[in-house]
Design a protein around this nucleic acid. Sequence first.
DNA 1: AATTCCTGGCTCGCGAGTAG
DNA 2: CTACTCGCGAGCCAGGAATT
Length: 428
Amino acid sequence: MSGLRERLGRLRGPAAAQPIAQPTPRASDEWAQLGAHVETSPAGSFVMRRRVYGADSVHGYYRLQDLADFAENLSCFHDRAGAVQLEELLFFDTETTGLGVGTGNVPFMVGIGFYTEESFTVEQLFIRNPAEEHAMLIYLQELIMRFTHIVSYNGRTFDWPILKNRYVLNRLKMADSRLLHLDLLYPSRSLWRNSLPSCRLSKVEESRLGFERVDDVPGSMAPVLYFQYLAEKNPAILEGVFVHNEHDIVTLAALAIHFGKLLHGEAAAHTLEIEPEEKFRTGLWLEKMGRTSLAEAYLDGLFEQLTNGEINVSQAEFESILLLMAAFYKKKCRYLRAVELWKRWIAVKPATIALQLDPYLELAMYYEHKEKNLHQAIFYAEEAWAKLWRRRALHRNDRKQTEIEEALEKRIRRLKQKMQRVRQLTVN
DNA sequence: AATTCCTGGCTCGCGAGTAG
DNA sequence: CTACTCGCGAGCCAGGAATT
């Protein structure tokens, strides 16, 4: 414990040299201005800020209480999990003194959120100095028993390991072996990897949950502000950090609602305008999560859009989504759909510098092996060859290119020999 | 002072189908 | 019947992203 004190003392710098004048007489008042209070137990004290969101609270597009209807759908995040109960989910986010996962990184604020009866409660535990960490950890340790799942954003590899470290350093044990982790970063990436500039929680909540923060203090400011607080002991410095952390927790709940709804097969009204790339990723994700028929319905809807032409995206995006969808249907052995998409790609693709032959080759393979139509197979192989030939000058000496070329010529040769044989057989 | 998950690119080997 | 080729899935490896 004294080691910690020293370390923080060093961080505190010159201000630490001055003796703390006198215990502030209005200690509870100064925290009251942030809506917080000092929580005291036999284990010690720390600062607690509790915020209760009533039944009708809304965060962006979603009513917080809506998770009641969809929480059970989150079960499929883990195959060995029993049904997820709303009130057994613990939303979790920390503010720390840095980004490292080593022991030097201290979570000075632990934000948690949970559902009870008709409301959603956010509790923020804050330590005014290293000595308070013990009491905070004990509080959390006891509270955590009520829950089966931790819900976080990248908490699996960041917040949680850091927190566990603190338990070890405080000679405490956290009984977390039975806890399952719902890290919403990963499904977020599954859906928005290509449709958002980044999958940071702030980007996701703004563009997909409809929640906009005003005057947000970014997480990267948290360490600086905490050190400033340690130096000046003025709680007002931390207001922005409390608010930021609180929003992170509530956003986690909203995000859980978003995924819960998707898994339930519920497309919210505002998702009507969703881009094909995101629709495709959503379909793949539903499939990965074991919602096979839902995924199929979802992607078949996209297929309709693509083939009806009732879609409004850039040419480049249209082309790429055609190929992605074709590959999906090919893997599912739904060849007719795949073929339709490859053909559409060819029809729609203007002659460009970049030559892509995959769809031609796919069609050649399909006609050779599935339809046994050698004429068509040769037709598409030769189309590819012609395309390649036209661009040949641009790719002279490109090793990869000549490899493709040789493979293509070999294919054509083989197909023609094969057809020759068939001819002879039919003649005889 | 890290970790986890995911993806793209690569190789390897297997099964099916075909050539000899 | 044997041997080859094709297509594809599995496995491996490297690199990227998110967290304060």
